[in-house]
Amino acid sequence: MIKKQLFIFISLFLSLTFSLLAQPELSPERKIAVDSLALEKVKDLSKYISMIGDKKTPFSEANRAVDRAMELFMEGSQMGVSAVGRKEIKYYGVRKYLERLMALNYQKVKIDWFNIQYISDLQRQPDGKYVGVITIYQKFEGVTKEGMKYVDTTKKDITVYVERKKTQVNGREIGYWDVMLGDIRVSETKRG
């Protein structure tokens, strides 16, 4: 029995070790390219969120933007939502968050993300994936039918997962970096 457990442990250890060794080491140039790729994905999300929130975006286009934004996330990722004067931070599944954003009860909505940067560099994990955290500032402006304006700025942290994968395209194998966004957590909210 002990022999069997030892065998399983050694097998798992070896397979994990080989798996790690199989992942390519990133040269500084390559690391810059991958960092930049992950940042671009966050910028893409920023544009989708802006589109989805904008009341001028046609419904069909907003729905399509929700689907495209969802493709950026890992399954089960959550989005934190805060408000000025409310201590509690609510977490929604990303799709639910985007659908709520689309249906916000404002006459006009403007969302801008700025200062998008890494606060935690991409680090290689034991499973071979690279994980980092990118922070963004989101400025939200909502104007009601009555002309009342609500403005807040929220600092949010986005966990980013990057994994090296291979696929076949027209019969040949190519290597690519799969960037997936994880939870988006609110770290600070202030008026204006």
Partner: peptide, 17 residues
């Protein structure tokens, strides 16, 4: 559509196709 990020160590890297 393939989007190449560059060639690193003789290997071409891509964004997700």
């Amino acid at each position: 559509v393939l989007i190449s990020l560059g060639v690193f160590g003789g290997e071409k890297d891509y964004d997700k196709p």
